[in-house]
Design a protein around this nucleic acid. Structure first.
Lengths: 299, 299
DNA sequence: ATCCGGATGAAACATCCATTCCATTTGGGA
DNA sequence: TCCCAAATGGAATGGATGTTTCATCCGGAT
């Protein structure tokens, strides 16, 4: 048997580790296995999506050669190696798959401390995903909108309310004028009625979307006023009205979504807006901020 | 057979097409299929790499529902639909690498994306620290107190208010009776005056401690009623009144503390309390649940 | 020339997969 | 209240998958 050089050795977990190990062993590799190495490094996408049969066919080798190759690199088998290629493609750290699996396995387990751990893991997962999912252009656009608003209206009900409350607190700390639309006494419509043309609504809502949030956001947008939405999918009912939209995918435990990633985004938006406004305020005194939306840009 | 609306119609070939078609048919989709749509849009990576079984499990539906969903969207089957998710991931790598590189290069910079990154790091740090700092005995004690309370009073003002709001939401979802002491109109004292002997106050406060929070917590404890405190040091003014205390050390960016760790703790407390009460409730059928009014419901 | 251990190809295998089918439930109209 | 159609859950099924096994091939040492 072509046994693994050292089965106890940790197998490569990231694509970069994998490349390093291949380089390191390439000399010692049998001819056919070196051929496999070449092909894989040259067509990583194909490896990520293909099956043993298709990859072997494309590389011009037998399926078993792939398995041997994987084992020569201290993997358990082809699938194990393939996981590295897949993780590379989804732009995540490789340990997440493992982490998620453990969370799901321990699903039945109880104990408050274990529960806490699971929430921690869910939060970590959400945070990692956030990094890859936020687009710089969207972020810049949202910050520009918020920075030139005279007043920022903040809307988030039910599960999203903690986020809204946090935003209100943070914006106030940053000397940015805001109105927390808390919808007390169903007075949401009255709370946003004072918004002017340059004002912005920062709306937060997740599945199941609170109808009031959607209605208020639509009403706000009706007047041509921009809405920045923090939600969870392109099909959120907030998407239509939103001039800028963030989709935050939060992991959940026992039906409770983490809010960690959303909070990070909220905090970043708040601080970035303050910085942007400070910069613009000093660069150009008033007026210059117009051209994003319609008439009557505010300073 | 629930046949496809129009099998001759070209199926979506790009991810954007797919999104459009889902949006277009969302209204007409049966409940379970809409659930599938939501899950897929929110976890596109998992769909790309997962199998029918894993995706169905994660979405909480039967495998057959996935196939039905795919066919409702004019695909041949799940695999056909999955191909769209895979194509979406193909060739995305450069973009991601580029982004990472830019973020790392811009170490000193202040762009919004870099800001987000820093908040993420702060949250990660806080989460890591939380794991080591929570004592199992304290946790168990707190959960025991909360579980046998008739009503849980929740108190957190200013920066801690989002946590309090979240707790109120979570406890309600879990069918645990709670009162959010929001101190509207400075009515905090009136809001807690109804608390009975077995009730518990869950108080949250961080430096600089809001005086009202401290006063209300002390007043609550005066009546011999237990206080569970989430705060940030043994010298917190909440420490004295607390029957159980958690010290959460959150990292901060630009003067803004992360709240991620605190949220995890809050969520864990809520769910653990619900589980504990369910267990006690089933162990001792009637009585343990009944004494909603009476003093000192015991478990 | 012969032997031998690693390397290789090809088929066999058990497992897992996507899909289909059918019994049951659900919900709205007569 | 009943009825019918749509929707749903769950098991059955045929096919494809990753892995293992084994016979053969090759190259170097004796």
């Amino acid at each position: 048997m072509p046994e693994a050089p050292d089965p106890t050795l940790p197998k490569p977990r990231s694509y970069d580790d994998l490349c390093a190990r291949i380089r390191e062993r390439r000399e010692r590799l049998p001819a056919r296995l070196a051929q496999v190495a070449n092909h894989m490094l040259m067509h990583p996408d194909e490896v990520a999506f293909g099956t043993v049969a298709t990859v072997a066919g494309a590389a011009g080798v037998q399926p078993s050669a792939l398995v041997r190759f994987a084992k020569a690199l201290d993997f358990d088998g082809f699938s194990d190696l393939q996981a590295v290629f897949r993780d590379r493609l989804r732009g995540r750290l490789p340990e997440h798959r493992e982490r998620l699996r453990r969370i799901q396995e321990a699903e039945g387990e109880h104990g408050p401390l274990r529960l806490l751990e699971r929430f921690e893991e869910a939060a970590q997962l959400s945070l990692d995903r956030l990094g890859g999912s936020v687009d710089e252009a969207t972020l810049a656009h949202a910050v520009a909108l918020l920075a030139r608003a005279d007043t920022i209206y903040i809307l988030g009900l039910r599960r999203a309310f903690p986020i809204a409350a946090y935003l209100a607190y943070a914006l106030a700390k940053l000397d940015l004028r805001s109105v927390l639309v808390d919808h007390v006494g169903a007075s949401g419509p009255e709370q946003i009625v004072g918004a002017r043309a340059g004002d912005v609504l920062l709306a937060v809502s997740f599945t199941p979307y609170t109808p009031a949030t959607v209605e208020l956001a639509n009403a706000f947008a009706q007047g041509g006023r921009p809405v920045v939405a923090i939600t969870d999918s392109p099909f959120s009912p907030l998407a239509q009205a939103a001039a800028a939209r963030f989709d935050v995918a939060e992991a959940d435990v026992a039906g409770f979504r983490s809010l960690s990633a959303t909070f990070c985004l909220a905090a970043a938006l708040a601080v970035a807006t303050a910085e942007r406004r400070a910069r613009d305020g000093s660069d150009r005194p008033a007026e210059a901020w117009a051209p994003v939306q319609g008439p009557a840009a505010r300073a």
